[in-house]
């Protein structure tokens, strides 16, 4: 009903999904999930609950051990490698550990998603410079990211994730290392993108963040997933609860 009311398909769907590493026990079991286009969710749970694991299926770095995962309507178990690559180009990811290419400059790191899909170098320069000055890193454009601080790296990672205006943005603890004054600015960036139609999932430990922005919350507990909706009634309405 929810999705039909919005007239859209779900960006992500999971059915009976289980994940295990090697021969170990399942760390997530029977996950059932549907994220409508244009939705914004927080992802919470204790350390080790499986937030990163769940996200990694969404950004197509991992297949489920069982069950089906569909991203942009494509079952990832039955999608050709090259088509998976095309799907990934529509997804922006902020990794918990940043995963920047530390031998490259801030500029080249942020330019990466654009170069991978063969964008014109002039256009790349324009976009990257613009975004880097927006995250207040224009001083460091040509510095290799190895020389940057944790917070600076995180902002680069975020810039890289949003540079190609993704349809799906997945962020793993994106504001963990940045100063208190820049965190709201970055959150605002995510919200702005969301308003433009990007579906967003943000894994976080920060209760403050969750309370400041009253978005529904995917909570991982005991290998399962529960969805909590914010108590605010207008938001309840917004999310058709």
């Amino acid at each position: 009903m929810i999705t039909q009311a919005r007239g859209n398909t779900n960006i992500i769907e999971m059915q009976n999904v289980g994940i295990r590493y090697g021969q170990g026990p399942e760390i997530l079991s029977d996950i059932r999930l549907a994220l409508p286009k244009g939705s914004f969710h927080f992802l919470t749970g204790k350390s080790g609950a499986g937030k990163t694991s769940l996200l990694s299926m969404m950004y197509l770095a991992q297949k489920p051990s069982r069950g089906t995962v569909s991203v942009f309507g494509k079952d990832i178990n039955f999608t050709h490698r090259d088509n998976l690559a095309m799907l990934r180009r529509r997804i922006g990811v902020v990794f918990q550990d940043f995963r920047l290419l530390d031998h490259l400059s801030a500029f080249d790191n942020v330019a990466l998603p654009l170069r991978v899909c063969g964008m014109d170098e002039r256009e790349i320069r324009k976009r990257v410079n613009e975004l880097l000055s927006w995250v207040e890193l224009d001083r460091h454009i040509l510095d290799t990211t190895a020389t940057l601080s944790g917070g600076e790296k995180q902002r680069i990672a975020i810039a890289r994730a949003v540079i190609n205006r993704p349809d799906l943005l997945l962020a793993d603890e994106p504001t963990g290392n940045v100063d208190n004054d820049i965190a709201p600015k970055l959150m605002k960036l995510f919200v702005e993108l969301n308003k433009l139609g990007t579906t967003v999932v943000i894994a976080t430990h920060s209760e403050k963040l969750i309370n400041d922005f009253a978005f529904p919350r995917l909570h991982l507990q005991n290998r399962g997933l529960r969805i909590y909706y914010p108590s605010d009634s207008s938001l309840m309405e917004k999310y058709h609860v």
């Binding site: 770095a61 090259d82 690559a85 180009r89 529509r90 997804i91 899909c117």
Partner: peptide, 16 residues
């Protein structure tokens, strides 16, 4: 492999 994984996540095809 770490770099390649990142390139893949950015949507790089094997050809790239």
């Amino acid at each position: 492999s770490a770099i390649i994984e990142i390139l893949h996540t950015m949507g790089a095809k094997d050809t790239y």
